[in-house]
Design a protein around this nucleic acid. Structure first.
Lengths: 338, 338
DNA sequence: TGTTAGCACTCTCACAGGGTGAGTGCTAAT
DNA sequence: ATTAGCACTCACCCTGTGAGAGTGCTAACA
């Protein structure tokens, strides 16, 4: 469909454009790459590539820029997944090391790492999976009428919420309740908690029933929202990219990023590493961007990574970075303390 | 120092500028407010006010804009803390109601509320105070070698962290450790936990000592970082303000907002409600902004609110909003569930 | 037949010049 | 002390012009 020469030219255009962010013209192309062809020939080929939809022209007398379809083609068939450059690799190792010894939260640290190495925006989420089961529940009275409810899930994540206690509840009764709830709910998966189960619980429990309702509500809430742990870093990186010189664009972008419940679904994918280009992301204000997502799963933990950059993203580098990162985590469970 | 007429003119200029974001000229001023004076007189007075430092002129033939000192004077002596307008009040009530029934996190909800009512940026923090004591500690094994450490503080906040367990530790031993640590640390304030205490603990504990170290490290970490719960909302609001048409400014602003460990100190103040204007905030990239902060304390909870807007902020409205909010929380403890 | 040189053409961008309007400061009259 | 009048100063907008980059087309060439 595309002969060898056209492929080479397309690739050259894309690589140049990724680097310069300027429309690339025929003359510039022959200068930078040594294809043994004159600008005129390149022009003809470029015109073909434009007709086929791989390239676009911002205006009549400008160079060409890749279309989203062009990027897609590049990513699918032409991208050489180069190893990380020596320097990047070094920086990465150093940062990974500093994360291991850091006492901060893992998501935040990884987000910072990804955004600083890529100079794009990074998203890290720790989704609540409905197949998680409840490992432990605690109810800790704080004042006479307020307590903190703590739920630990089988992947080690913790959710907590404050609940109101009925007036005059004694600590003995709270302990009793805690034991009861634990006995009943330990090992139960989140998806199994439904009205019926709660009704049964209420029937069995010889004590204050309203509390059970509270607990149910909160557990239910935990199922719905995994956004608790969505971390974003490097928004400012994007503003350095020439495509975001326009405040209005930035405004829309940031607005979408503030709707964090709508971001989590974006990070889900079937493959290990997936690349979404422009409208494939499914969010209007991201239509000039690309998103590379990766997931990492361990028995005790699931993490979703996302890297959001301009469509003119260094795909090869980004992908190999994510692969490297996953490998690092996989091989030594190198997550240290959260 | 300032006669009645100068005060009136200064106030008029400030109010107009807050409203229009445009330099206000002598003619425009007499038109909008009915002072019985001609533009020429106003011009003379304005020149005086400029000399005194209350007003500034962007360039020779433009109107005047308030200097930061002008704002400061306005805020200190001339601001009438109007009640919220009927409409705002209504919206606020509605939002407060929806928060009570929401099952989301309180900080987030309040942040959303504040930013949507003010159309500025809001910050909410729940700081860890070193005078907090430890109410309860839990160690929940997750895999053979990993556990989640949970610490509940006396104000009801929860911190958690995963820790590595030594190979081959039995659950009996974990329970033993948990009981021991609880017995020793319950009621101890965060600031009292130091090397000496840890050394004593280690001496007393007949078991694996490395875990105690882990626990100490984590508790120590909790003291230092209250940023865990810093929530920011409404960054996009700021981008709507005409003073942020410049991407570079936005970039710097966002950059500062991403350093969230440096934000918490900004929200601390001695008074109940404090207003920081421009350089008073102490962050370079906020030098065109003002920050209004308020704190709210209840036995089981402490919250810090901050509203960041352009120096040209509606101070009166913002302050009365925060007062109203605090009153709401105080009178009925209306925080519902977190 | 594919490739290349040459050329006219198009379009953006940067810059300069001129007109407009808002606003000032000064001066002289009230 | 206040005000009307007036000359002056900028910022802003519009326009035009020239330079530069790049294209498409045509005709010549291997």
């Amino acid at each position: 469909m595309l002969d060898e020469r056209k492929r080479a030219i397309l690739k050259a255009v894309i690589q140049d454009y990724i680097f310069t962010a300027e429309p690339v013209g025929s003359r510039a192309l022959v200068k930078r790459h040594d294809i043994g062809l004159s600008p005129a020939t390149i022009r003809n080929e470029m015109a073909d590539l434009e007709e086929m939809g791989y390239l676009e022209q911002p205006h009549t007398s400008a160079g060409r820029i890749p279309s989203h379809w062009g990027y897609r083609f590049y990513v699918n068939t032409m991208m050489d997944e180069s190893e990380l450059s020596g320097k990047d690799s070094e920086v990465l190792d150093k940062l990974l090391l500093s994360i291991r010894s850091s006492s901060g939260s893992l998501s935040r640290d990884v987000a910072k790492l990804l955004s600083s190495v890529t100079s794009y925006l990074s998203l890290i989420a720790e989704p609540a999976s409905p197949s998680q089961s409840i490992r432990h529940i605690d109810i800790i009275p704080v004042t006479n009428t307020a307590a903190t409810l703590i739920v630990v899930l089988s992947d080690g994540t913790v959710r907590h919420h404050s609940v109101n206690l009925p007036q005059g509840l004694e600590s003995r009764q709270v302990r009793h309740l805690t034991r009861f709830v634990n006995r009943q709910l330990e090992g139960v998966t989140l998806q199994d908690i439904d009205e019926k189960l709660v009704a049964d619980l209420k029937k069995d429990f010889a004590g204050n029933v309203r509390l059970i309702d509270s607990i149910f509500t909160i557990v239910h809430y935990m199922m719905l929202t995994g956004d608790q742990n969505l971390v974003i870093d490097g928004a400012t990186n994007l503003l350095n990219q020439p495509e975001f010189k326009d405040v209005e664009k930035v405004r829309k972008l940031l607005h979408s990023l503030e709707q964090n419940d709508q971001l989590l679904p974006l990070l889900q994918a079937d493959e290990d590493i997936a690349i979404k280009i422009g409208s494939e992301i499914g969010v209007d204000s991201f239509s000039d961007c690309s998103l590379v997502i990766a997931s990492y799963t361990r028995p005790d933990r699931k993490l979703l990574f996302g890297i959001l950059g301009p469509a003119r993203m260094e795909y090869a580098k980004t992908v190999s970075l994510l692969k490297r990162l996953r490998q690092h985590f996989q091989e030594d469970g190198g997550m240290g303390n959260e």
